[in-house]
Amino acid sequence: MTEDQTRKPGEAFFAVLLSVGSIAAVWNAYGISGFESLSSPGAFPMAVAATMAITSIIIAVRTLQKPADRHATFWVDVLPIPAAIITVFIVLYAIALRPLGFLPTSLIFLFVTILLLSRKGIIFSASVSVISLFFIYIVFRLVFSVLMPEGVVPEREILAFFGNLFGGFTK
């Protein structure tokens, strides 16, 4: 076993959190149908949740026994600042996706993250984001007809307009 012999910052918390979650899962699984029968909808979830609870407690105990890694800090070794910032950005992106629509949110997200990460200037970030978004839109929306949230951009009307312009559907 070559497992780390020291405990990373936050590792103990994570392990305990998983144990708590697993125990909650056991309780929840029991609530599905109790010990009704071997074929009940809750039987398999209960067995699985019990396995989770047992293993997660073993892991938590072992983790707590390990000596803490004194040289590591959470914001450097576990969740470095850039990763934290980007995580916040993705969450914001996901939240804004439906109300604002796919095109504007994606454009802003790509532009801002590329700008922050690459530090190559506005023109570089803007052109990379526009070009890649263009291709993704073609593949997903036009070829595969995946209707991404439209939000504030009336996509279908625009597409219908172009369709009529090029003599697509005529009534």
Binding site: I86, I90, Y93, A94, L97, R98, F102, S106, F109, L110, T113, I114, L117, S118, K120, V128, S129, S132, L133, I136, F140, F144, V146, L147, M148, P149
Partner: peptide, 22 residues
Amino acid sequence: TVMIPLILMLSIVGAFAVNNSI
């Protein structure tokens, strides 16, 4: 620096596309 934002966006689009579900 370019690839990571693209992967993140593609992940979001891809996850949405599976069931059209936010």
